[in-house]
Amino acid sequence: MLVAAAACPCPPLLVPAVAAGAAPELDDARAACLDAIGVLAAARPDRLVVVGPDPGADPGAGGTVPYPEGAAGGFRGFGVDLDVRLGPGGAEGAAAARALPPSLAVAAWLLQRVDWADAPVEGVGVAERLEPARCSAAGRELAARAPRVALLVMGDGSACRTVKAPGYLDERAAGFDERAARALGAADTAALAALDAGLAHELKAAGRAPWQVLAGAAHAASPEGRLLYEGAPYGVGYLVAAWS
Rank of each mutant, 00 (worst) to 15 (best):
G62L: 08
P9F: 07
D156R: 03
A5F: 10
D118T: 11
P166Q: 01
G185S: 02
P120E: 09
R148M: 12
G87H: 04
L34G: 02
L142H: 09
A218H: 06
A95N: 01
E178C: 01
L40P: 05
R140F: 03
A107K: 08
A200H: 07
V18S: 00
L228F: 09
G89V: 11
A23T: 07
R226P: 05
A127E: 10
R145E: 14
G77R: 11
R148T: 11
A127S: 08
G70S: 14
L203R: 06
A41W: 00
A4T: 12
F78M: 10
R85G: 11
A232N: 13
A127M: 05
G198D: 15
I37Y: 13
V80D: 11
I37C: 15
L169G: 03
R44M: 10
L111W: 11
A19P: 10
L203G: 12
G235T: 10
A17S: 10
V121S: 00
V106N: 08
L2T: 13
Q112V: 03
A94M: 12
R179L: 06
R140M: 06
A94K: 15
Q212P: 08
A144P: 11
G175T: 05
R98F: 04
A99D: 14
Y67I: 07
P88G: 14
Y234P: 01
V240A: 00
C135M: 14
L82F: 01
P102V: 10
R98D: 04
A150I: 13
R30C: 04
A242N: 12
Y234G: 11
P55T: 07
V39Y: 09
A22H: 14
A180K: 04
G38M: 05
L26V: 08
S103G: 03
A242I: 08
L227S: 01
R226F: 04
G93R: 13
L104N: 05
V15G: 09
V213I: 09
G70R: 14
A43T: 03
E131Q: 14
R85D: 02
G231Y: 09
L40F: 07
G198L: 09
A72P: 01
S103R: 05
W116K: 02
A186M: 03
A209L: 02
